[in-house]
Design a protein around this nucleic acid. Structure first.
Lengths: 192, 192
DNA sequence: TGTATCCGATACAACTCTGTATCGGAAGGG
DNA sequence: CCCTTCCGATACAGAGTTGTATCGGATACA
């Protein structure tokens, strides 16, 4: 992917076409600008990943026996794809400057949450836990995923980073759930 | 800042010089490339922000009376600077493709943690809490900060996002601390 | 089989950016 | 007061990029 290698701003129509195996003539008869192509690619791939995630999660009910295992199973469906995260970082930077793309990013998050939460809740139910506030847990998971993904890719050789990533997810899920029988239905407990 | 407006890859030496009020001749007698300037600017500004953070936090011991107030105080020292976060997003995307910049990013995180944690621990001590595992809390805070900052800037009009951001920080700090008298000294408790 | 339509390749003209080389002036040292 | 040194401005040449216009072939349809 040219955008991952060069950065979006430095990519040229020529480079993209060369790698894709067609010419600039072909490009300009299908798109009007690189921006448009970038958006199209990102949306398509983003949709694919969400479909993959959803498919993976719903496919076979795994025999999880603890909350951590449930989290690990979900995380295993979200690979740390180096190239793809570079493209996403480019897209994020681009979106922060472009209202139209901002909406695309917002939709992406909504769809991730929509695809993730039901399965996650089902998995957690199996280990006897109930999510208290899905509307808070979803965004928190996405934010932590994005934040820790960058950390993992910035220090690819630091295994502790990846370990902490998992721990953080477990922590989040733990704090946002209660034992299934519990009557508590408020926001995550703050002990002090 | 040109990099925030145009994106790094689309910025030209000409644009940068125009805004800064000098000419390309002046530029090339002080830097060898835009990459170098970008790195210099980002490191300098990043250092400034860390100094500001440290100064703000150590300056006057605020009269916090709860863990949440302590967190809110710290967060108030980290403003959601729209322009600056755009530059950071650009830098992040750039760093994911460039090992030298990766190291700069890693150092940035270390310095944030180094500047933040002592004061945070002091503040928390004042409300009767002790951090259990600073080496885990620091990176988690940074990751969540970066992740939620994007969310806030992607949906600037959504106040719920900003609220959840604060809640998330409170949650993280809560989970990584114990009551000051407690003997517990293990990793954050996972109840189930 | 002939024709119309579509799509991609090639060619082209205009523009933009980069990096360097040369020139002029200002500041500092002797 | 002169001279040297440094720094920024201007000018220029080379390279690369964009978007369009024209051409050729393939495919679908009558």
């Amino acid at each position: 992917m040219v955008f991952a290698r060069e950065g979006f701003g430095r990519s040229t129509v020529e480079q993209v076409c060369e790698q894709a195996g067609f010419t600039r003539g072909a490009f300009y008869s299908n798109f009007t600008s690189l921006d448009e192509l970038f958006l199209a690619i990102w949306e398509q791939r983003s949709d694919e990943m969400q479909s993959d995630l959803a498919a993976f999660l719903t496919q076979e009910p795994p025999p999880v026996s603890s909350l951590r295992e449930a989290v690990e199973h979900v995380l295993s469906a979200v690979p740390l794809d180096d190239e793809w995260y570079r493209v996403t970082a480019e897209f994020t930077a681009h979106a922060l400057r472009n209202p139209a793309l901002r909406r695309v990013m917002a939709r992406r998050e909504e769809r991730i949450e929509a695809g993730l939460m039901p399965t996650l809740e089902a998995l957690l139910a199996r280990v006897g836990r109930r999510v208290v506030d899905p509307a808070a847990l979803g965004p928190a998971l996405v934010a932590c995923h994005d934040g820790t993904s960058v950390q993992c890719l910035i220090e690819p050789d630091n295994v502790a980073v990846r370990q902490r990533r998992t721990d953080l997810f477990v922590l989040l899920v733990t704090a946002h759930t209660v034992e299934a029988g519990s009557a508590t239905d408020t926001a995550p407990q703050e002990t002090p």
